[in-house]
Design a protein around this nucleic acid. Sequence first.
DNA 1: TTCTTGACCTTGAGTTGCTCCAGGCCGGTA
DNA 2: TACCGGCCTGGAGCAACTCAAGGTCAAGAA
Lengths: 117, 117
Amino acid sequence: MRISEAASRSGLKIDTIRYYEAEGLVPNVARGGDGQRRFSQENIDWLTLLYWLRETGMPMKVMQRFAALYAQGDETIPDRKEILLDHSRRLAKRRHDLDRCDEILARKLEIYEEYLK
Amino acid sequence: MRISEAASRSGLKIDTIRYYEAEGLVPNVARGGDGQRRFSQENIDWLTLLYWLRETGMPMKVMQRFAALYAQGDETIPDRKEILLDHSRRLAKRRHDLDRCDEILARKLEIYEEYLK
DNA sequence: TTCTTGACCTTGAGTTGCTCCAGGCCGGTA
DNA sequence: TACCGGCCTGGAGCAACTCAAGGTCAAGAA
């Protein structure tokens, strides 16, 4: 697969994929004889995972560490598991923040309604 | 109130408050005779709202517009209401993203477990 | 066959939204 | 009077993209 398809499948932009690769977040991207990137299904799955991790606020440093472990093979699975569990805990915190903000917005909107009445 | 107290009450850092003020996000910050900022309760409430809007991903441009309307007085309440409703819709989208990511993480962790067994 | 188009490449600059630091002022305390 | 903490400003640094310039190459149209 070429980069445009990798982008549309993973959700990341083309520029972002190139940037991530340069930063070591995407191991094993092959190149065709023309020098262009070729993405395997495994690459796409990995990019998709990165997309969701980014979308939910994982910092690049963590992704870098995660990618480095991934590149090292299966014996790093316990470490990777730790990272994902950790992120999952962050998601819970974020959900809590959303709830809190919802409350605040609801209260504010109530005040506006009161004023507009 | 001085800036350190404004920071601890709103959740924003001191530097962030100064930055926000410089960018026009915080109308009507008074100064004492010594040139130092004095924050009213209204300022604090406003900063706290900004804290939650930022925390949940509102871009600065939107906050800027929101602040400009706020500074113009009560007749802009309908516009401000629109902005908050809009943001509230974004929060729903974000919650959906969190759910989606949770699923993906759960699936990934399952695969890891399978491997570690 | 030459020309154009489109997708890709690299390098480097620009943007957003903070965050931190240097250097300076001022009021209170030892 | 010397020091301290908290405040000030201006400007540099940073994270994570995002975009623009300039170039290559394959494929199809004229």
